[in-house]
């Protein structure tokens, strides 16, 4: 898959993975990998970008006597997911044309 296209999808997949429940890096990789290949070094910049765009918020909590960083989707992040659903219809139309 085209790298830019993949980057866009991965951002959405990360947002979708925390839509219902806050999550952390390791769990996100476990959740997303079956759908799209995602390496640990690919996830970090995506999380950083989403954080910079304020689509996610981070917080740390204690787990097993150590700190674990959690990611929580923001209202803007949820909006981004809703917008992506609208993109889906357009993408479907584009592919219907490409593959005709």
């Amino acid at each position: 898959m085209d790298i830019q296209l993949k980057k866009g999808f991965l951002e959405l997949l990360v947002l979708a993975s925390i839509k219902n429940q806050d999550s952390y890096g390791y769990k996100m990789i476990q959740d997303i990998s079956p759908i799209m290949e995602l390496s640990e070094s690919t996830l970090y910049p995506i999380l950083k970008r989403l954080d910079e765009q304020q689509l996610v918020q981070t917080y740390t909590t204690e787990y097993n006597s150590r700190l674990r960083k959690y990611y929580k989707i923001t209202a803007a992040g949820k909006l981004k997911l809703i917008e992506s659903a609208q993109d889906f219809k357009e993408i479907q139309k584009i592919y219907a044309y490409i593959l005709q």
Binding site: G25, Y26, S39, E40, S41, Y44, L67, K69
Partner: peptide
């Protein structure tokens, strides 16, 4: 921040029952 991210990943992998060295090898 990157080191913190990787440290947490490795620790989570260990806590989930993965071998430390195997997981690190998998990271590339």
């Amino acid at each position: 921040e990157i080191l913190g991210y990787y440290e947490e990943l490795i620790q989570d992998a260990i806590d989930s029952g993965q071998g430390e060295e195997q997981f690190i090898a998998k990271l590339g």
